[in-house]
Design a protein around this nucleic acid. Structure first.
Length: 725
DNA sequence: CAGCCTCGAGTTCT
DNA sequence: CTCGAGGCTG
């Protein structure tokens, strides 16, 4: 008998060790019930590693040892999701949820489904990162982040190291299966990891969510392997039809569990909206006792075969809803109130807070808007205040806690003088804002004016940011926008944090901005009340800079008032309506332009810009009646291209459009004769929604205004992602 | 004059 | 995103 006869072959021992380690993984990460001490696990792991090293012919990509990470990726490839990863509609109030229930029932009834049989499955909304996992013949082959919903990043190598993700599925698995779920970190694991980070002198992460996101995006999978990531499955992507998939969402989750995928334990199936709200309240009360962070709960119509019929609103399914918990609030101390000076000289009080962790980030500043707001909130320096992250991002001081007010709390008074230049501060009758009267003498205003001039939607000078402007103004290198064009790379490279390369780039960007469309230039001037829209109206009306500034503004103000008065009163029949000049531009705005044009300093700046070679180009399409507008040039209202598909339509863009900037979309709307506005109202024709749309979707649904996604929109204007129409 | 509808301006943190 | 304020309508 050969000596190794009762000892299994290396291959068999490798297989046995792999199976045993996976079993322990499963027990620990999926069932949350460890079966062996950590030391024992490590011993088995080491044994397997040694065996595999000695017998490389038995290596396998789905061995547990591979979870420590393979080759370093040079970047992440892109993965197009076979089915898009959708975002959910958000709800914050009980009424939002009732509205959701009503719409679901209406849609179900419209699809001739028995609405009485409707059931909902409610589960947790994990606060982590959405990912998609592809399994082929039960083996994990690819994992990707959500990305923009259509295309994500390939993080397969990193996900292989996540032990809660089975590399092989149990039982009969479909040939192809895409599982959607969330990668996250448990709070206790997060704390432990952060302690270790601190010991090593590395920067700790701010919260479990950021830690999970950062870990998943490590280029070196070996680093990811050291991070205690978890995973929960909650949804289905593409699946081949060789295995029957359960017909209800609850059963789908059970099936995932049977395949060895971790699923959330807190869930229930209920028949009506009251059941959903009860679940929400129950979970809300137990939120702090859960081992991980959640930001709400999710409701889905349990009948999966109804989903298609109930349909979608834009990119969001109508059969599912994310019911979020209210913004987290925290107490902190109001250390001081500073005053910032804006471009127009407005003095804005800003709260300096004792750094406080709220809603996932550390908040140190918050705007207090204005004097009245301060008074309403009854704030005193030294007060304990309640801070909230409103609308998901912007921190807000909700109110003070007067009973905790210390004896030495100080009341804050708006300063009588500008904190930057010392000029007088004034509050105009009927306005809330205090303003520094220093104008461009004030360095703060000068800096802001330059930043405004350079911004993307104005002159689009890339690289001229806050840090650079700060230095240019402080060193008196630049007084007015015209001075920018006298800078050269040699001067620029003398600035802090400015190498030769960036200096050359900036110089080139400044030079390139000499050619600019008239409306951008008018906007860049920063005339009070003249934003992008008004600048566009002026450019279309006057066609040139001189025509705009030299127009007879006093006459226009009068003419407009007279025309409006004439048109408003009952006219004898037959008497025609008088044309109203400059629709959307009233007396206040006209006076502001008049004042700007009359100021010699402004004329000098413009002359300087021209001398430097800045010459705004006239609007390209200024209809073919050009010769008709001589002199003052009134009466001609720029008509949207009448043949445009969107002619006469008012469109609101919200959310992040996949693969298109918001500006681009708005330009596209205008190009096709529509107008793009910022708020949803009765007059809105439709809402173009992208990912993570805000409150505007809710408003649109409430008003019964159609919502469409980018694809539908592009099809509408006859551009299926291709150039030209 | 009141009640919309828009636009302009300011703002936080990663 | 939100608020303030200008423009327009009834």
């Amino acid at each position: 008998m050969p000596p190794d006869v009762d000892e299994a072959s290396p291959q068999a021992r490798i297989e046995r060790l792999r199976a045993e380690l996976e079993r322990h993984n499963h027990a620990y990460y999926v069932l949350d019930a460890p079966t062996v001490p950590d030391a024992e696990y490590d011993r088995l792991f080491l044994a397997l590693q040694q065996l595999e090293a000695a017998h490389p012919e038995h290596a396998s990509p789905d061995s547990p040892t591979r979870r420590v990470g393979g080759a370093v990726a040079s970047g992440f490839g892109q993965v197009r999701h076979a089915l898009p990863m959708l975002s959910l509609q958000n709800a914050f109030t009980d009424d939002d949820v009732r509205g959701f229930d009503r719409r679901v029932r209406e849609a179900a009834a419209a699809a001739e489904l028995d609405a009485a049989a409707l059931r909902y499955c409610a589960e947790l909304k994990f606060d982590g990162l959405a990912i998609s996992l592809r399994y082929e013949d039960g083996r994990f082959v690819q994992g990707a982040t959500r990305g923009d919903g259509a295309v994500g990043e390939d993080v397969t190598a990193n996900l292989r190291t996540v032990r809660a993700i089975p590399l092989r599925l149990d039982g009969p698995a479909p040939r192809r299966l895409e599982v959607r779920g969330e990668v996250l970190m448990f709070r206790r694991d997060f704390e432990r990891m952060n302690d270790a980070q601190r010991v090593r002198g590395d920067k700790p992460f701010v919260n479990p969510r950021n830690a999970a996101a950062g870990s998943l995006r490590q280029l070196d999978p070996a680093l990811t392997a050291q991070r205690p990531l978890r995973f929960f499955a909650y949804g289905l992507g593409e699946v081949s039809d060789d295995v029957a998939v359960p017909g209800s969402h609850a059963a789908l989750l059970d099936w995932f569990g049977a395949l060895g995928l971790p699923v959330g334990q807190h869930r229930c199936t209920v028949p009506d909206v009251e059941g959903l709200l009860a679940f929400y309240r129950d979970i809300g009360a137990r939120r702090a006792t859960l081992p991980y962070d959640i930001d709400g709960v999710v409701y889905k119509v349990d009948q999966r075969d109804w989903h298609e019929a109930i349909g979608f609103v834009a990119r969001a399914p109508r059969f599912a809803l994310a019911h979020k918990f209210p913004a987290e609030e925290a107490l902190t101390e109001l250390l001081d109130i500073d005053v910032q000076v804006g471009r127009t000289g407005v003095l804005t009080p800003v709260a300096r807070l004792r750094p406080v962790f709220v809603g996932g980030v550390t908040v140190t500043n918050a705007t207090l808007h204005n004097e009245d707001e301060l008074a309403r909130k009854d704030l005193m320096i030294g007060d304990t205040v309640i801070v909230r992250r409103a609308g998901d991002v912007i921190p807000e001081v909700v109110r003070s806690v007067p009973e905790a007010r210390p004896a030495d709390a100080r009341r804050f008074l708006m300063p009588a003088h500008c904190p930057v230049c010392g000029s007088a501060a004034m509050r105009e009758e009927g306005e809330v804002a205090w303003r520094c009267v220093g104008g461009l003498y004030c360095k703060a205003q000068r800096k802001q004016a330059l930043l405004h001039f350079a911004q993307r939607r104005a002159m689009d000078i890339d690289g001229l940011g806050e840090k650079i402007v700060e230095q240019l103004v402080e060193r008196d290198l630049v007084q007015t926008p015209a001075d920018l064009y006298r800078l050269d790379a040699a001067v620029l490279s003398g600035l802090d944090r400015m190498g030769d390369r960036s200096a050359a780039n900036l110089a080139a960007a400044i030079a390139a901005s000499r050619e600019v469309a008239l409306e951008r230039f008018v906007f860049a001037l920063g005339i009070r009340h003249v934003g992008e829209e008004v600048a566009r109206i002026l450019a279309a009306e006057f066609g040139g800079l001189d025509e705009t500034l030299d127009a007879d503004w006093a006459g226009l103000i009068e003419a407009k008032a007279a025309a409006q008065k004439h048109n408003a009163r009952a006219r004898p029949k037959g008497e025609p309506l008088l044309p109203v000049p400059l629709e959307g531009v009233g007396p206040e705005i006209m006076r502001a332009i008049q004042a700007f044009a009359a100021e010699p300093h402004n004329r000098e700046v413009i002359a300087g810009l021209r001398a430097a070679g800045v010459e705004p180009t006239r609007p390209a399409r200024r209809s073919n009646v050009g010769a008709a507008s001589e002199g003052g040039g009134t009466g001609h209202v720029s008509a949207p291209s009448p043949d445009g598909v969107l002619s006469g339509r008012i469109i609101v863009v919200t959310g992040t459009l996949p693969g298109m900037a918001r500006d681009e979309a708005e330009a596209l709307i205008r190009k096709h004769g529509g107008s793009a506005t910022g708020s949803v109202s009765k007059r809105t024709s439709f809402v173009l929604a992208g990912e993570n749309p805000g409150s505007k979707i809710a408003k649109a649904t409430e008003l019964g205004i159609p919502v469409m996604d980018l694809e539908q929109f592009l099809r509408m204007i006859g551009r299926d992602g291709q150039e030209n129409s």
